[in-house]
Amino acid sequence: MGEAIVITSGKGGVGKTTTTANIGTALALMEKKVCLIDTDIGLRNLDVIMGLENRIIYDIVDVIEQRCKLKQALIKDKRFDYLSLLPAAQTSDKAAVTKDGMETIVSELKQEYDYIIIDCPAGIEQGFQNAVTGADKAIVITTPEKSSVRDADRIVGLLENESIDPPKLVINRIRNHMMKNGDMLDIDDIIQILSIDLIGIVVDDDEVIKASNNGEPIALQGNSKASIAYRNIARRMLGETVPLQSLEDEKGMFYKVKKFFGMRT
């Protein structure tokens, strides 16, 4: 029996979809059976980030309206067998997805998969309600900005009303130099306001955008900071104790040598 986790944030553009794709990929890399669900009807993105856009035949609305079986709508990832995606509909109306429909789908998937990761749309309306229904756990994404923390706080408040475990927090898009200068909220401030457990921090990394555009989740690539961060989150979800990533840039041996000779860096 698997576990359903909803990834949500309230505010748009903080990285819900990217996080869903990467946590899912990281879990699959650790040989867990993972199914991603995109619930952002009409604005589907998850398939693009996963690079599976061309393979969509049926979508979640087709499943709910019983035009196809759930198994038919699932897309197997092109890289490994452990990962599947249930894409959102691009053309249908948002109202097509109901709470009951979502619950049925999630509970059916739980039989088959270890982790069901639900990508929630922005906002707190029906789409959010649908995504949260059936989830056992929640991960709230925020960035170190006031508006995004405010919305995350609202979301945490709304999740209190659901029968769901207390959510975990991911702070995304951290820019170390801004945090140091006090131009961004720092991690402690954010945790103090939201007072939920932190499960990971992800630095703002250009590689993430590049990888998303190529349809290859960053978690698949070796050693970029964001990639390690997402894999760390997945490890923590499995119960491992992993220390938080250091935000300092590792300058490396070459830098030190250059500095020694007084060269410009």
Binding site: R150, D153, R154, V156, G157, L158, I193, S195
Partner: peptide, 25 residues
Amino acid sequence: RIVRSGQVLEYVGDLLLVGDVNPGG
């Protein structure tokens, strides 16, 4: 408890809240 953004706590009489009132609460 924590009174989060968008939440309203309303009581008759005096209130001792052990917890925070977040911005927007």
